[in-house]
Design a protein around this nucleic acid. Structure first.
Length: 148
DNA sequence: CGTTTGACTACGC
DNA sequence: CGCGTAGCCAAAC
């Protein structure tokens, strides 16, 4: 298990989860955080927001050369969280588009099409993690696109 | 060692 | 439904 004083291990878990995200799919910071058991020092309500921040920090410290698809982690709105217009943000958008992920006119990704609900239960159990809340619960909504 | 900032969110207006 | 603000933790100044 990991300790708050040892964010290293927390980052490792984040990266491991990110690596599971299939090509052409995305997960949010909050989803990944929700999969990781919070430390005893943090209450679940707080962790929901804190964890997302920690995941963001973990992604910021993502090591290169390990094949970690950092570009598949986006914010809860479905958009890229890096500074708009920055080279990094541009690169992320391009990498996702190269995988087949499309952005709408507002620069957001449609979770119904590209959102990923996490690894299978076997993997989760083996890693001691929780299944993340689905981001694509709005299926069938009248306000949402038809398609397919 | 006090301040500021951040690859986040939830909530109020 | 969009924009602004508060909150809490770590890391960078």
């Amino acid at each position: 298990m990991w300790k708050p004083t040892d964010p290293e291990s927390f980052n490792r878990i984040v990266w491991k989860i990110a690596k599971q995200i299939p090509e052409g799919h995305v997960m949010t910071y909050g989803q990944i955080a929700a999969m990781i058991p919070p430390p005893d020092s943090v209450t679940p309500p707080d962790y929901k927001r804190l964890g997302a921040r920690w995941v963001g920090q973990a992604m910021n410290a993502t090591p290169s050369g390990e094949g970690i698809p950092w570009q598949r982690v986006i914010n809860s709105k479905g958009g890229i969280s890096l500074p708009a217009g920055s080279a990094a943000a541009d690169q992320q958008r391009q990498m996702l588009q190269a995988e087949g992920v499309t952005f709408n006119d507002r620069g957001l990704v449609d979770f119904d099409r590209y959102g990923w609900d996490g690894p299978d239960e076997v993997w989760l159990k083996a890693e001691g993690l929780y299944p993340p809340p689905s981001m694509r619960s709005n299926r069938g909504s009248a306000t949402q696109p038809k398609l397919l």
